[in-house]
């Protein structure tokens, strides 16, 4: 399909809006389906652990006790469903754009990109900053967010260098980028302290890892399969 802004002097800047709209449509559907699946998994597996951990938070340790919070039940679950659907949309956009650039279609390629997303956005950050239950002490928020951003960016570039380039020096550079965030190390509080029992926290890490792996692989497979339905 020709770019919709034909006749521009700079063909590089003539965006093909039809292709962009197809990527958005594919990602929206994949993200909503993946987000729905993740919400169901969380509702039956991790939400009970979050609620249990909150029982250990007394009003004095709860930071935002006076602020509005969604009511437990449909309201709280509804916001989580919305969050999961929208993050699913965002993640699916990254997957479908990557496959679009590389002319890939189908669920098998999608599974590969889903695995990459799981490594970039879950495994690598979790190695330094494991998923935490409410009431767990951790280092100052901005330093953890900065490390999270650095780690996802370095891991994405590292995987690209290692697996999608043919030059030895780019592959070595990629492997170094994968290791770098973990050599620097994630910010941690000087004295770690958690309100919930250690067993609950470990259970939470295992379940979130399984749920996010299922979510990412499903999201990738659906995105890849939906890309078969559109022609660019």
């Amino acid at each position: 399909m020709p770019p919709t802004t034909d006749g521009t002097a700079l063909p590089f800047l003539a965006i093909n809006m039809a292709d962009f709209r197809k990527l958005v449509a594919v990602s929206l559907l994949a993200g909503l389906l993946g987000g729905l699946l993740l919400s169901l998994l969380q509702h039956y597996q991790t939400l009970p652990l979050i609620l249990a951990a909150e029982q250990f938070e007394t009003p004095s340790t709860e930071e935002h006790v006076h602020d509005w919070q969604p009511m437990d039940g449909w309201q709280r679950n509804g916001f989580t469903l919305l969050f999961n659907g929208l993050t699913g949309f965002g993640f699916a956009l990254l997957i479908s754009a990557s496959m679009y650039w590389r002319d890939q279609r189908g669920y098998l390629y999608g599974l590969g990109w889903g695995l990459a997303g799981f490594l970039v956005f879950f495994v690598a950050p979790s190695l330094g900053l494991p998923p935490e239950l409410p009431g767990t002490d951790s280092a100052e928020l901005h330093s953890r967010q900065a490390w999270w951003l650095f780690t996802t960016a370095a891991t994405a570039m590292g995987l690209f260098g290692l697996f999608l380039t043919k030059q030895r020096w780019l592959q070595i550079g990629g492997a170094s980028l994968l290791a770098l965030p973990h050599l620097i190390g994630a910010p941690h509080p000087e004295i770690a302290h958690a309100l919930a029992p250690e067993a609950l926290q470990q259970h939470f890490v295992v379940l979130t890892s399984i749920n996010n792996a299922i979510f990412w692989l499903t999201l990738g497979a659906i995105s890849g399969q939906l890309l078969r339905k559109v022609t660019f």
Binding site: N16, S27, A92, L94, A97, Y100
Partner: peptide, 17 residues
């Protein structure tokens, strides 16, 4: 011709995330 649609999708995705 494939650069901008993909790039726009990635920018939108990162903004949402």
């Amino acid at each position: 011709s494939k650069f901008l649609p993909g790039f726009s999708a990635i920018v939108l995705g990162l903004t949402v995330i």
